[in-house]
């Protein structure tokens, strides 16, 4: 399969503290990759480098769909092809749900308002939230807001979707509705990179699971490899801690 994201020797440091120690990772088109690991292991930083929300060391290289991720004119092109869903939703609070989803296609792709509105309604229907289109984000539950955020990212028809702990800020009873939307998405062939603590989701949906610790990829493989027969002691310890309670 053709690689859509290729990461070579990704190094990221805050001052003298190194967060990522030379990560190498290739993600194929249509692949669903779940990144798991303890807090502070660098998994969020890893995906935030892919659309350059975080800068990285000059010796590192990230290429998305043939375009190098670097500050400058190409960055907007990369970002238009890479959608992101944040832990804290980050919807635009002064716009209706519909406008939230319409904004980027109009401003970045130059879509006409009617076409953007039609696409937005389609997407809101897909995430099961069309009836809330004219409300403001503040009037919605966390789960509903996160589904809007997914629709907003999808409106750009991205080649790659990044999820940064999308259910971590949700009340427990809202987690399911967001994971359901993500499962449906995974079936549509869009490339997904999901940082998550939802092991059930990773096991069920991922093509590949990556376990990170201390800014390194410790182990990666199919969900069966990682969850049923982890090779590294660190992976085993982590899974024991999160699964057995």
């Amino acid at each position: 399969m053709k690689p859509i994201v290729s990461i070579k020797n990704l190094v990221k440091a805050y001052g003298s503290f190194t967060v990522l120690h030379g990560i190498d990772l290739t993600i194929a088109e249509g692949e669903v990759v779940c990144v798991i690991g303890p807090s502070g292991s660098g998994k969020s930083t890893l995906i935030r480098c892919i659309n350059h929300l975080e800068g990285f060391a000059p010796e590192s290289e990230i290429v998305v769909d043939g375009v190098a991720v670097l500050p400058g004119a190409n960055l907007a092109r990369v970002r238009a092809e890479v959608g992101m869903v944040f832990q804290s939703f980050n919807l635009f609070p002064h716009m209706t749900v519909l406008k939230n989803v319409m904004l980027a296609p109009m401003r970045v792709r130059g879509m006409k308002p009617e076409a953007a509105a039609a696409r937005a309604r389609d997407l809101l229907a897909r995430v099961g939230i069309l009836e809330q289109a004219d409300k403001f984000p503040g009037q919605l539950s966390g789960g509903q807001q996160q589904r809007v955020a997914i629709a907003r990212a999808l409106a750009m028809e991205p080649r790659v979707l990044l999820f940064d702990e999308p259910t971590s800020a949700l009340d427990p009873e809202m987690v399911g509705e967001v994971l359901d939307v993500m499962k449906k998405l995974a079936g549509t062939g869009v490339t997904m990179v999901v940082v998550t603590h939802e092991m059930g989701f990773a096991r069920q949906v991922a093509d590949r699971v990556i376990f990170m610790d201390g800014g390194r990829i410790v182990e990666s493989g199919t969900p069966a490899d990682i969850f049923d027969s982890p090779q590294e002691p660190r992976t085993r310890a982590f899974l024991r801690a999160v699964l057995n309670h």
Binding site: L91, F92, A153, M156, L162
Partner: peptide
């Protein structure tokens, strides 16, 4: 800051 990040992630100028 999340508002800046969401805008950047969508590719807005």
């Amino acid at each position: 800051n999340g508002q800046f990040e969401a805008s950047a992630a969508l590719g807005l100028s």
